[in-house]
Design a protein around this nucleic acid. Structure first.
Length: 425
RNA sequence: GGAGAGAUGGCAGAGCGGUUGAAUGCACCGGUCUUGAAAACCGGCAAGGGGUCAAACCCUUCCAGGGUUCGAAUCCCUGUCUCUCCGCCA
């Protein structure tokens, strides 16, 4: 959510910023609502003031034992007027609130203009793309020949975009998860966190998935109020909803491993082959709650933390700065990490690291108390995948494949694999 | 699932339907005292919104949503959550 003051005082600037982020703000409509709001709010508050004063005087008169009836009579009309004004005000406020909830974040200055992922900017690459002296397979073929990945079983049990893992490959995914969690807790100072996988509407409003992106979510059937989380970002960031955090506790750094559930409603036909795009996948998520003054630095640091996993696994990747058209609704600036996938001969997203600045915090009412002023200030929220575990599994399989179809276990994972050095049939 | 109790400021905890946005304590901030600190004492200290150059001032908020009333933290209804006891259970 944007600062309402900004919206009121600089509507033209906001409109421009919204257009850069692919949204439109109907200024005439907004200004008209604002004018009405102001007028009705003042009128309502005057009436409330009048009622309060009269009620108070009735109380005083009664305490003195005076006759109250004339006072009561003089108040009768007031109640109706007030009720009408309050209803009217409520309507306008909720309309304005809806507009505010539907507006995306203002993008950081350095975010380049662009339409889609083709306009993203490559900031740097890491690692060497290997040459293979044999025909490389993708993870689907590798997984099938190793009898460890089975899409048919996934489809039978659930449907399309589901998968089963078996044996060493299932363990490899667990190893990756453990490895990532250990690295982030032991070396990067994150606190391991366990959170619900089902969340309520308030949480999704807080982080910005609702109200605009309900179709991307799985909702529980019947009258259950729960949604499956599309990312740990939702429950973890909502840890600080409605909280005022002590200065000494800042920054907060959380890491959580959760499954993630996405409807992929807009992705028919995309990535239908393989494990790239599933309804259910594992992810290790990094979340930082920081002071406004620290957020850019924290965003860089968090991105490095995600990168360090790829480096430790010796997986080639590149760092992308997302353009305006590809940056998410709530984000002001997003870096994507794209890992090299030999089977697809291309880079694919494996982590997305975003700085939301105060956008989520305002929806969440997440604040910290600044000792210098004694006042609560909105926090900045930052998160990123560290990493998407399912895709990391794919990357390891494809990058560590051998001519005979076996997969070498990366050194960093061997302690988690019972010292297994190679996966073969 | 059954029976009961509860939800109030950063925390703890009072609060006969009437000048209560809310006693008190802790924490926190400023000051006096002290070589310094502690203690003691004095003062300040909720959030959000409107308003103003800045103030003054005004409105809202005591879990949430409805209701009763001139007036609700206080009474009524619904929901959520927490605690205690019983039952069941990974």
């Amino acid at each position: 959510m944007l600062d309402p003051q900004l919206l009121r005082n600089n509507p033209d600037d906001v409109k421009k910023a919204m257009q850069k982020h692919g949204a439109d703000l109907d200024l005439d409509f907004f200004n008209q609502l604002e004018t009405q709001r102001k007028e009705i709010q003042i009128r309502t508050q005057n009436l409330q003031n009048e009622r309060n004063k009269r009620s108070k005087s009735i109380g005083i008169a009664k305490a003195k034992g005076e006759d109250i009836q004339p006072l009561l009579d003089s108040v009768s009309q007031l109640g109706d007027d007030l009720k009408a004004a309050e209803v009217e005000l409520q309507g306008i406020l909720s309309e304005l609130h809806d507009i505010q909830l539907s507006l995306p974040n203002v993008l950081a200055e350095e975010v380049p203009d662009g339409k889609d992922e083709d306009d993203n900017i490559e900031l740097r690459t890491w690692g060497n793309i290997p040459d293979y002296d044999f025909d490389v397979k993708d993870h689907v073929d590798l997984g099938q020949s190793l009898a460890g990945i089975n899409f048919e079983l996934g489809a039978k049990i659930a449907g399309s975009r589901f998968v089963t893992l078996t044996g060493p490959l299932a363990r490899l995914q667990r190893a990756l998860t453990q490895f990532m969690l250990d690295m982030h807790t032991d070396q990067h100072g994150y606190q391991e966190t366990y959170v619900p996988y089902l969340v309520n509407k308030e949480s999704l409003l807080g982080t910005g998935q609702l109200p605009k992106f309900e179709e991307d979510l799985f909702k529980m059937a019947n009258d259950s109020p729960y949604y499956l989380i599309p990312t740990a970002e939702v429950p973890v960031t909502n840890l600080v909803r409605d909280e005022i955090i002590a200065a000494d506790d800042m920054p907060l750094k959380y890491v959580a491993h959760t499954p993630c559930f996405r409807s992929e409603a807009g992705a028919y036909g995309r990535d239908v082959r393989g494990m790239i795009r599933q309804h259910q996948f594992e992810k290790v998520e990094l979340v930082q709650i920081v002071k406004a003054s620290d957020s850019e630095q924290a965003h860089e640091a968090l991105t490095h933390h995600a990168e360090s996993i790829l480096q430790a696994l010796n997986l080639p990747y590149r760092l992308m700065l997302l353009c305006s058209g590809d940056t998410g609704f709530s984000s002001s600036k997003t870096y994507d990490l794209e890992v090299w996938l030999p089977g697809q001969n291309t880079y694919r997203e494996i982590s997305s690291c975003s700085n939301f600045r105060d956008f989520q915090a305002r929806r969440l009412k997440a604040r910290w108390r600044n000792p210098e002023t004694g006042k609560p200030e909105l926090v900045h929220t930052i998160n990123g995948s560290g990493l998407a575990v399912g895709r990391t599994l794919i990357a390891v399989m494809e990058n560590y494949q051998q001519a005979d179809g076996s997969i070498k276990v990366p050194d960093a994972l061997q302690p988690y694999m019972g010292k297994l050095t190679s996966i073969s049939l």
